[in-house]
Computed example of a mutant assay.
Amino acid sequence: MRAAVLTGFGEPLRIQERPAPEAAVGGEVVVEVLAACVPPYADEVFSGERRYPLVPPVVPGIGGVGRVVHAGPDATRLRAGDLVWCDSTVRSRDDALTPDITLQGWSSRGEGGARLARHLHDGAFAEFMRVPTENVFPLPAAAGADPARWAALAVHVIAYGGLLAGGLAAGETLLVSGATGNLGSSAVAVALAMGAGRVVAPGRNRAVLDLLAERFGPRLRPVPLTGDEAADRAAMSEAADGPVDMVIDLLPPSAPSSVARTAAMTVREYGRVVLMGGVGMLGGDDLALPYPWLMRNSVTVRGQWMYPRTANVGIIRLLASGALDLAPERVRTFGLDAVNEAVACAAEHSGAFDRTVLLPSGGGRRSG
């Protein structure tokens, strides 16, 4: 098979011929990869800037849409030819409470995660990939008409997992810190699809704030940020027009902790704050939420890395029902030979509802 291979950090991806993966007797599925999202920060991973624990040579890629080629005997419903979503969040099977985790073809956590990464080393930037059976989820037939658009699952399932972690309920007010970014704008769309009463969307990018307001109407409350913590907190609280039930932070590593703190401290008494972004990953000040404020207001703060397996089923249902609409998203697609062009495109077009998608098993460049 043909695959895009990271041979070393700081090197361009190279197209190589590799043996097609073979599944173990049980517990694994081989999938032909039709479409895989290229994250906007992929160039930072491949350059080594983000210091991800990838071990070259490696086929990168974080999940994808594909068709089942082979399923083992312990798969009772999957069949060859089924259209599926392949979740990259792989968990060890020998610890139900605190499983080790690797993001297949992308990252890992701790020594246990590194062991998983050595076993499931390669990701979705290839014509075929080997995936744990429990990470393969059937897609509706409609997804087969545009698998590139459905590859946005890689983004939306993360935001959905964070909203589940915070227990977002229908009718509640949510504040999305980092709302104008690629992942933050996804959280806006997913929250409204889940029935949020209103979503407060702070950000510095006026054009994206206008885009969000135009797309989602009065339930979306945009707030231009000024950098003045007190003024920004007051503006966000005013936009909510009532208590903020939950805050989710999805800011990138480049964002200062003060922005995340300002947003978090808009939450009401007994409110919830979910941290899913990258603040502090590249250095800088800690979040430093005030102890008295947390204690006296009974605020729950939760960190959330990725999402539970069941989130894949939930987000697929939201998409299949039409509650979460993929039609307005701008999708740029590239064939496998243009993988480095795709990485550059993803970095350049990293805004709200911009998707760059690799088509490993065929297809070329188009936009839509």
Rank of each mutant, 00 (worst) to 15 (best):
R109M: 13
G144M: 09
G303L: 06
F137P: 06
L326T: 05
G162A: 02
G280K: 03
A344F: 02
T173Q: 03
P138I: 07
A4T: 02
D94I: 04
L6F: 09
L282S: 13
G8H: 09
V208T: 15
L97V: 14
P57Q: 08
L164I: 11
L153P: 06
P19A: 02
L275Y: 09
V313P: 01
V90W: 02
A234H: 06
A159L: 00
V259E: 11
A114C: 06
M1K: 11
V29Q: 02
P12D: 08
V58Y: 09
P253Q: 03
G314R: 12
L164D: 15
P360Q: 05
Y270H: 15
S321T: 13
D245Q: 06
R93K: 12
S321I: 06
T333M: 04
M306Q: 15
L163S: 06
V247L: 01
L174R: 04
S186G: 12
P222G: 10
E28K: 04
E111G: 07
G144F: 11
R317G: 12
A213F: 07
E28T: 07
R149K: 09
A145R: 13
P202E: 10
G61V: 00
A239Y: 05
G27Q: 03
L336W: 04
Q104V: 07
P56H: 05
R272C: 12
C86A: 11
D286T: 14
R332I: 01
L225R: 13
V30T: 13
V65G: 08
G184R: 10
A4Q: 05
E11R: 14
L97E: 15
H121R: 15
